[in-house]
Structures are given as structure tokens and as C-alpha cells.
Design a protein around this nucleic acid. Structure first.
Lengths: 120, 120
DNA sequence: CGGGATCCACCATGATACTG
DNA sequence: CAGTATCATGGTGGATCCCG
């Protein structure tokens, strides 16, 4: 049941999944590409203004290495590169959706907590 | 629509969710507690042997701070501490399940890739 | 003895400037 | 526009020590 991938050993699909989508901006990038695809780097940056360009590129490279997204370079000047989800990447939709749903619930929870009178 | 939490500003439930469950071992810990609860630290360590104790404790503390898990200390010697999911923590079940499911799909995908004849 | 904290090293992440 | 280089910072991991 062990999975060997990129010089490492994983003991469950869950572990492998976390290594593949565990990066700081990966879920956010996948979320962008689920809603709108293909996207250019500059377009992803507009959707994720909190992420810096360097990190975004690294996360995109890693996702490409894991074949979760595809990267297509147009041989033009100025350069034009488009990213989109692969088949296995598209199957992450339930993951992203459930995270968004829980996030909304947690957001409500946090807001309710904030209105409570603090115990001094 | 902005969410203010712990000195930071989030622009969607998704962002807030990622900050809450984005730690290296948080999903794994939640997975453990979904399957078996309550658990002591030593029991979690047995289930997650790859994680070191210090990281596990830090992740547990952060999850406790976000009220995703509860920590109960028995006033006994030797010390006994039990962790379990809160209500909002239990609602992470769809997230964990979807990650596990995708992980299994991705695992199959990776295995098929491994059998392909490499292009030299 | 179990849960936790401290010291140190490393790698991922972040901010900015720069290149083709 | 897409991507790289450089430097600063924070999260992560290993080992060890502390406390009741």
C-alpha cells in the first residue's frame, strides 16, 4: 500500500495528497483555475493579490511537475503563458468546494465569537 | 465581506479556512480525531510517526486557539491530556474525506505514470 | 513517565529589484 | 509579461532538557 513518488515514500493517498496540494497558495491557485481557465500569470496575480509573484511561480511549477496543471507557452513576444487544470487537477473540485463551504461556516463562527463579551 | 481575525484580514471564507487548517500536520491531526476520539498526544504520535512531537504540539495548540479542537487536562500524575474535535472541527469531515478520495485517485494516477516507459 | 519547553539548523515563504 | 536573483523572515524539523 506504500506509494513511492519523487524519491519519497507515502503511506496513504491522504499523505500524497497533502504533499501535492499542501503548498501555501496551491489551493488558491486551483480555486482560480476552477472558476476561470485558462489563465495567464498576470491574471492569477490579479485574483490573488496577497501572494507575491515569486511564490506564485514556484507553486505553479510544483503543480505542473505533479501534472495537476498544464502550462502552455506561446512562442510570441512579449511572452504569453497560459495555465489550466489537468484532468486529475479538475478532480480537486470537491476538495476546494468543501474547503470554501467550511470556511464560510468558520467565518460565521468567528464573527459570533467576536461579538461575545470577553471575560476579563 | 471582510473577515477580521487574530489581527489579520481575510477576504473570503476560503482564505480564512486555509489559514486555520493550512499547517503542516493539521489535516492529518483532524483526520486522526475524526476516526478516533478523544486521543492523547502519545496516541496521535503513534498514528503520525512521521511528525515530531514538537510540531504536533504546536499544531494542536493552534487548532485549539482556533477552537477547532478542545484540550482537556486531567489533574493526575502522570499527566493525561485528551484532544478532541469541537463542533466546528467535526464539520471538517467533508474536507478531510474529499482530500482522502482525491489522494487515492492521485495515487492511482501516479502509479500509472510510473509504469510508462520514460522518454530518454 | 508523559506532556511540554528550549536551543539550533534548515527550508519554505515573502519583498524588492532586475532581466529577456 | 513572464520569470529570475538577492536578501530578510517565519515555519518546520532534530535533539535535548524540564516539570509534575
Amino acid at each position: 500500500m506504500e506509494i513511492h513518488y519523487k524519491e519519497k515514500t507515502y503511506f496513504s493517498g491522504k499523505d500524497l495528497a497533502l504533499s501535492a496540494i499542501g503548498g501555501r497558495w496551491k489551493i488558491a491557485v486551483i480555486w482560480c483555475l476552477l472558476h476561470d481557465s485558462p489563465l495567464r500569470l498576470s491574471e492569477i496575480q490579479k485574483k490573488l493579490p496577497q501572494a507575491n509573484q515569486r511564490m506564485l511561480i514556484r507553486q505553479l511549477r510544483e503543480l505542473e511537475e505533479d501534472q495537476i496543471i498544464t502550462r502552455f507557452v506561446y512562442p510570441v513576444v512579449p511572452p504569453k503563458v497560459e495555465y489550466q487544470l489537468s484532468d486529475i487537477g479538475l478532480r480537486l473540485e470537491p476538495v476546494v468546494t468543501s474547503i470554501c463551504n467550511w470556511g464560510d461556516e468558520f467565518s460565521d463562527f468567528v464573527k459570533k465569537e467576536a461579538t461575545k463579551i470577553p471575560v476579563e
